[in-house]
Write a protein that binds this DNA or RNA. Structure first.
Lengths: 289, 289
DNA sequence: GAAACCTGTATGATCTATGATACAGCTTCG
DNA sequence: CGAAGCTGTATCATAGATCATACAGGTTTC
């Protein structure tokens, strides 16, 4: 008898309440129904309700006050999200800011079939594989797995990879990047990414897969990136251009984001990040991008 | 004693193997280690390993042959993914194709604080709220919650909303859409979206939040969309433009997608999906958009 | 064909999550 | 102050997940 893996009830309640909170159904500051009421409403025991509330509290979505109740935490002011304006293009190259990078793995290996194909490698050609974690203010937010053809990977060292953005190293070698394809998706955190990103196994992750080509069509970089959704998301501002006959949406460049900032690009997610914790990562190295 | 909610072990193994498969570590066709070997490797019982394999099999990632072994299923040919080219802009308005829409909820309500603010509504102003599910080939792939100011929502009927794309109805009313902001993220499926999308609770979902404004700055549409990542993802092709001094990435327009197949453009796994199931949705209505 | 391996299936023991209940301590309100 | 409601905590019973083990039946290899 295969009992279908029914997710834990506490998780069910947690997700239910979480949706109601983020949807605004339970507005910030609002006191949500008491634990006995919730238990009755969802036909579970109060212990289970508490587990769900524990999860919500751990995520900072609610705040509990003994004797008083459980209140929806106002997240608007407490969202130091690493918002990344990806005008679909700029996010590729810039996103400056001082972030730390930890190199988890580095080496030359035979590429998996799918990677070799997407990079257009010849049979037997090897690749440089690296796994890095990016941190902001000491907190990890992305888990990057890159594959680069061996001939290109040999133009820089392991230390350089940990200190400089990969695209910069590629261009420094003389290779011109010309074309790229990206795909954005979602997945669940497996054991390794979860550990690296300081998450529970099974947490949701934003996914970005990118393949960059040079003018001759050779693949020069294959990136598989996993992002913590609570610390990173893709933003874009669009404007309608063209005359009435053929209006189209186009990314809005030069839309000043906060106070000042120049008209075009340049990773202008300023503000925040005033107080900075010292970097505590073991192999963490300061870098731009 | 709060025992930390450690996700089920079977789930852990499942995610672990899934990562190794999609990463190409276990290439398609490969026979993965036997159940006893996996059990020993991860220090769990064989029963638990089987649960993990059950999940993988249900997702079509592996195929089991009694007496022989468990094999990685070649997913490349079995991925009828609704790949959506979002040149970051077009995906807003087009994405033609005949999809079905089910209207789950429709009505006029007082907007949640966050919605009212993002739309720039006056206090007390009401909104039209609708929840729709989009299906392709009878299979649901997106769960859309929209909020529209009441004055605008009254210009079309409930039936029209179920039959036509919302942006089209908005523009038909004479309102000009001028500016939009989007954010893409990831989350877990709560009970309602999970049921509507035919998913397990806790499955990963792609998220798109969009606010559209008219030339005067009024908000005219607030969209919160949830997508099944196995049936939908955001794709974009980029090219490098500008001279050497100031090169930038720009979305590649007019890149024909399906028939020809540019050499290094994966994700467009054609073939497959020749036979089509009839649409069975109850309140399903054919529509473009 | 026989040995070695594999998946499929079943059993009972054990650990964990959940249920039902009770009570202590705090907060709010009249 | 005192009643009512809430969270925090503990107890023991039950249901579900996992474990350890055993065996049946198919596949591969020799």
């Amino acid at each position: 008898m295969k009992s279908a893996v029914e997710p834990l009830k506490a998780r069910r309640i947690y997700l239910l309440l979480r949706d109601r909170i983020v949807a605004g159904d339970l507005p910030p500051g609002c006191r949500l129904p008491g634990e006995p009421a919730l238990a009755a409403e969802h036909a579970v025991s109060r212990v289970t309700v508490r587990r769900a509330l524990d999860l919500l509290e751990k995520e900072g979505l609610v705040q509990r006050k003994a004797g008083s109740g459980t209140f929806v935490h106002d997240t608007r002011s407490v969202r130091p999200i690493v918002a990344d304006l990806s005008n679909v293009l700029s996010h590729l190259i810039d996103m400056g800011r001082s972030t730390d990078v930890k190199l988890l793995s580095f080496g030359y290996v035979a590429p998996p079939e799918a990677i070799a194909e997407s990079l257009g490698l010849k049979p037997g050609e090897r690749v440089q594989r690296s796994v890095r974690v990016r941190l902001i203010d000491g907190e990890p937010f992305s888990y990057l797995t890159t594959h680069v053809p061996e001939w290109l990977g040999l133009t820089y060292s392991e230390a350089e990879l940990a200190a400089r953005p990969l695209l910069e190293l590629i261009e420094r070698s003389g290779v011109k990047t010309e074309r790229a394809t990206q795909a954005i998706n979602a997945t669940l955190a497996g054991p390794e990414p979860a550990a690296a990103l300081d998450l529970e196994i099974g947490s949701p992750l934003l996914t970005l897969t990118r393949v960059v080509h040079d003018p001759s069509g050779r693949g020069v970089e294959h990136l598989h990136a996993l992002y913590r959704p609570d610390r990173y998301s893709f933003h874009m501002d669009l404007v309608r251009i063209g005359d009435d006959g053929e209006r189209r949406w186009s990314p809005a460049l030069g839309r000043p984001r906060a106070p000042n900032k120049t008209k075009a690009d340049k990773a202008n997610t300023d503000k925040n990040n005033a107080g900075e914790k010292p970097t505590r990562g073991s192999r963490a190295i300061k870098q731009r991008s």
